[in-house]
Amino acid sequence: MLLTVQHKTIYRYDMPMRSAVQSLRLFPSRFEGQHVLSWQVEVANGLRGASFRDGAGDKVEGWSVRGPLNEVVVTVEGQVETADLAGVLRGHREMIAPEAYLRDTAATEADHALRQIGADALAGSGGALDAAHRMAAAIAEAIAYRPGVTHAHTTAAEALALAEGVCQDHAHALIATARAQGIPARYVSGYLYASEDGTPHEAAHAWAELYLDGLGWVGFDPANRCCPDERYIRLGSGMDARDAAPIRGIALGAGQENLDVTVALAAVQQ
């Protein structure tokens, strides 16, 4: 599938700020499921800084903006050819040992209920892949999609207790469940092309990857009850949503920040 992306993020401040610095993970991952035809990341009036590929294989680029400034505008434009690998992250180069993704973070600590979901999924499953599918299905069942109920800092356990949430909560809950059963898991951020069937999810999306022996990293998207396919563009990963954030930034000054994001994905007819 040939997908075009237009993604604009605007941070507005109610008074002039002294300067801003950003660390961007806004570049499509390099693996067999994605082929980048064009990709441009730009911070308006910004100075491009250091760039490197981190241990998880993600490209990171630093930017800075000199003040005084009233807004920081990050635009992403590009075209990616995608293929359906049934969620398998084939051909992705990375350095971090899978075991490093067993460590808990505040957002992904498993409580008794999450442990139970994992134990139930594992019991009577036909191998790791089957167990992972069962976990993802159980999370999808336990947490209904509903925006506005949870917030950026809601933990996996809290979302499960609320039984409602968004893709971030689904991903956190699946990660917590898997790690509690000794399966390395991580948070993935990216884009999702929502086709005409009226899927309500935003184009800026997130899901989880589990490390399964014999397969390596495999994506699971409980929010959509599937594994990432050609409708998905993968950007980067981390221990949880905060760690995998596509944009990390800070503006120095006393102003209050207001965020405005627009993402548009389109499929190009071939």
Partner: peptide, 25 residues
């Protein structure tokens, strides 16, 4: 050293002081 089984993976990779941010560098 972990692959060789000389130090348990858990002690290294799940250590609070292990920094993902510098892995591979």
């Amino acid at each position: 050293i972990v692959r060789a089984g000389r130090i348990p993976a858990r002690l290294v990779y799940q250590n609070e002081a292990y920094e993902h941010a510098v892995s591979g560098f």
